[in-house]
């Protein structure tokens, strides 16, 4: 197995606040890697650094063997990185289907002028994207919402739309920030099934969550606490680790 993502000695400060303190770990190709940690541990900050929303004060992000520390968000997207947000970010005025067509953006080539002139390849790309979108709507059980503006959906469904939108982009690495928060128990079960399937199909997943149940799908986990990795290993090893129990499980 090779590393799809390497986080190397990453530190980050917000003013005087030292949020990440030399974090290093790797995400192996084909794995489901979990990242747990109490509130304010720096998980979302780390996600922002991995996806290009923040540049770390110190350290490097290596994506597919290439130093991506200073690459833009879109560049990393084209390299095969997708992420979701802790507060779901759907395109509210766009229908679910249009959300997914937007998710396919990186597969297309045509631009403003081609669309303005109504060239046939524009229609062809739209048709291709619509086929992918409709397949994802089936898969993520969003059929009844297909033509509804995504902003009108219940929170759990918005998460599904966001996940589906990331998946249609066909990422090599899918980073999910608290994907189960706000979901019902039944919806969490469906989410776990979906993620397992995606992983079986070859997608590498990095998962941030408080939810230990969701962590059952991970093959390796890291525990982040006050900006430092305090333990790494399997779910069982985590549950057994006294440091994790103290910091995270509160026992």
């Amino acid at each position: 197995m090779s590393a799809l993502l390497e986080v190397r000695e990453v530190s980050h400060r917000f003013g005087g606040l030292h949020v990440l303190k030399g974090v290093s770990f790797t995400v192996e190709a084909g794995s489901v890697t979990g990242l747990i940690g109490p509130n304010g541990a720096g998980k979302s900050t780390l996600f922002n650094i991995i996806s290009g929303f923040l540049t770390p004060s110190v350290g490097r992000i290596v994506l597919l063997g290439e130093d991506a520390t200073r690459l833009g968000i879109q560049h990393r997207s084209r390299m095969g990185l997708q992420r979701t947000f802790q507060t779901p970010q759907v395109f509210r005025d766009l229908t679910v289907r249009e959300n997914l067509v937007a998710g396919c953006h990186r597969h297309g080539r045509t631009g403003v002028l081609e669309a303005f002139l109504g060239l046939p390849q524009v229609r062809r790309e739209m048709r291709d994207a619509a086929i992918v979108a409709d397949a994802a709507i089936e898969r993520f059980d969003l059929g009844p919402y297909r033509d509804v503006p995504a902003g009108e959906l219940p929170a759990g469904r918005q998460r599904m739309v966001e996940l589906a939108r990331a998946v249609v982009a066909e990422p090599k690495l899918l980073c999910l920030d608290e994907p189960s928060s706000g979901l019902s128990t039944a919806e969490v079960q469906i989410l776990m099934q979906v993620l397992r399937r995606l992983n079986e199909e070859g997608m590498t997943i990095l998962l941030v969550s408080h939810d230990m149940e969701l962590m059952e799908i991970t093959s390796k986990m890291h525990a982040l606490c006050f900006g430092e990795i305090i333990a790494s290993g399997s779910l069982d090893a985590m549950r057994a680790s006294p440091r994790v129990r103290e910091a995270y499980l509160g026992t």
Binding site: F53, S77, F85, D93, L94, G151, E162, R165, A166
Partner: peptide
């Protein structure tokens, strides 16, 4: 329209 609604997510989509 996507970048008007949610620019961060639009950037992630590669727009």
């Amino acid at each position: 329209r996507a970048m008007r609604d949610a620019p961060a997510a639009a950037a992630v989509a590669g727009i």
